[in-house]
């Protein structure tokens, strides 16, 4: 499909490694001015029209919450004020990859937290022109698939989508986000 152009839009892509680079490339080809940012929560994200946060993974649950959920919160927090003052903004949270059969409590916890965080930000900031959505990549999703879904949610094509969770490449419907 042809997604709306993002000409003139600034976009911060936080985390993701190779996936982050794919997302950055996708955004650039759509006309946006993206930059990659390390996911360290210690440094705030510069003001941007679009924030894409890609959750990192960890084996330890507390660490996974820190790099997958708390970091989403702190980066969103740093861009929301400027977005509100500009009167527009799009945030996309990308959950950690969900394995088949749902037997991964850590990934499920991160996905559930991101889903609810997105809903609350959507609720609080919807009137300010800010949209927040989540993509839930499954085992069958390639980086290109994920980047395409993120591009949709970041673009004006998704003008009436906020607080949603979009599963991509999952072998079965996921119920994790509650």
């Amino acid at each position: 499909m042809t997604t709306s152009r993002l000409d003139g839009m600034t976009a911060a892509v936080v985390g993701g490694g190779a996936l982050g680079e794919t997302i950055e490339d996708c955004l650039r080809r759509s006309g946006a001015a993206p930059w990659l940012k390390t996911p360290s929560p210690a440094t705030p994200t510069e003001p941007a029209d679009i924030l894409v946060f890609v959750a990192a993974t960890a084996v330890d649950f507390a660490e996974a919450v820190a790099v997958g959920l708390e970091a989403a919160f702190t980066h969103a927090r740093s861009v929301l004020g400027p977005m509100r003052r500009r009167g527009h903004g799009a945030i996309v949270f990308c959950a950690t990859r969900q394995p088949a059969a749902g037997d991964c409590p850590i990934a499920a916890g991160i996905a559930g937290g991101l889903a609810t965080l997105a809903r609350s930000i959507a609720y609080q900031y919807g009137a300010d022109g800010i949209r927040v959505n989540v993509v839930l990549p499954g085992v069958l999703a390639s980086d290109a698939d994920i980047a395409a879904a993120i591009l949709l949610l970041a673009s004006p094509d998704a003008v009436f989508m906020t607080g949603t969770c979009l599963p991509i490449g999952q072998p079965e419907p996921s119920r994790w986000p509650g």
């Binding site: 649950f61 919450v65 959920l69 919160f73 059969a101 749902g102 037997d103 991964c104 409590p105 850590i106 990934a107 499920a108 916890g109 991160i110 996905a111 559930g112 937290g113 991101l114 889903a115 609810t116 965080l117 997105a118 809903r119 609350s120 930000i121 959507a122 609720y123 609080q124 607080g163 119920r175 994790w176 986000p177 509650g178």
Partner: peptide, 27 residues
């Protein structure tokens, strides 16, 4: 934990708790 509310941190903590708990139920 399943809705957007004026309490994003509380909601996120409960949303994460739900995801974790349901995955354990399945496991």
């Amino acid at each position: 934990g399943v809705m957007g509310t004026t309490r994003p941190v509380y909601g996120a903590s409960k949303g994460a708790l739900i995801g974790l708990t349901l995955a354990l139920a399945r496991r």
